[in-house]
């Protein structure tokens, strides 16, 4: 979240990708960094023990979320 918000402040569009268990942390970080409500993509948790197929699914979700948040489709 910190990196994404820093990028936005530099006028570079960015999307943070969080797993479900870090949603509240991401919301808190956007608030303490002065950009409350900053949207981010959410994927399932946990990533580290996911199978290759599971990772592909997460990547697909992330791509969909990024498109939704960055583009006016």
């Amino acid at each position: 979240m910190h990196d994404a918000i820093t990028a936005e402040r530099l006028k570079v569009p960015a999307i943070g990708v969080m797993t479900t268990r870090f949603v509240s942390a991401a919301e808190l970080m956007s608030r303490v960094l002065g950009m409350p409500g900053y949207p981010f993509a959410v994927i399932p948790h946990p990533v580290s023990s996911a199978t290759d197929d599971g990772l592909r699914e997460m990547a697909a979700i992330a791509i969909g979320e990024v498109k939704r948040l960055l583009l006016r489709l």
Binding site: F22, S24, A25, L28, M29, V32
Partner: peptide
């Protein structure tokens, strides 16, 4: 620094 459990402290 707001390092509370469930807040900054994860």
């Amino acid at each position: 620094l707001e390092v509370r459990p469930g807040g900054i402290d994860r």
